[in-house]
């Protein structure tokens, strides 16, 4: 199943409509062999999906990009990792996951509550998980990663 396209579309639609900035692909989506230890950027958001199969969507970006992005979302300047940034990042991730789930409706995904972590984290992705990393970029701000993790059927 192609999860990359609906994920890319959901990220672009959500950031464009809610934050007024349109990201682009900066490279080809890549299937990362697992097991794999993934090191995130300064801000990492994870939201779980349950349904016909289980998975997660993750977004990882540098602090300064997250500050600009969530600042644009709430229309206030953000200069540090604070509660507004963490809460806003989680809400954006929730909207992205909702849009993604609607695009793969046949999987009947339900959304878990998002988790947002500040600081660089190492996340262990176990064997048997299809781990797709999608490099994206805000042309004026810099690169970030969208990732999909799905349990293989």
């Amino acid at each position: 199943m192609d999860y990359e396209t609906p994920c890319i579309e959901s990220v672009i639609e959500t950031f464009s409509s809610m934050c007024g900035v349109e990201p682009e692909l900066s490279g080809k989506p890549e299937i990362i062999p697992t097991p794999k230890t993934f090191r995130s950027d300064d801000v990492l958001g994870i939201i779980g999906l349950t349904g016909a199969c289980k998975g997660d969507i993750m977004i990882s970006m540098k602090s300064e990009i997250a500050q600009k992005l969530i600042g644009a979302f709430i229309m206030e300047e953000i200069n540090e990792i604070n509660d507004d940034l963490m809460d806003g990042f989680g809400e954006i991730l929730n909207i992205i996951a909702g849009a993604f789930a609607a695009k793969v409706e046949e999987k009947k995904f339900q959304l878990a509550l998002p988790t947002v972590m500040a600081g660089q984290h190492q996340t262990h992705i176990r064997e048997g998980i299809r781990f797709i990393s999608i490099p994206m970029v805000f042309p004026d701000w810099g690169e970030f990663k969208a990732m999909i993790l799905m349990e293989e059927a």
Partner: peptide, 12 residues
């Protein structure tokens, strides 16, 4: 439950 969404809706 999102303070951010409440803030955005309040502003609108």
């Amino acid at each position: 439950d999102s303070a951010t969404m409440r803030k955005i809706q309040r502003r609108l």
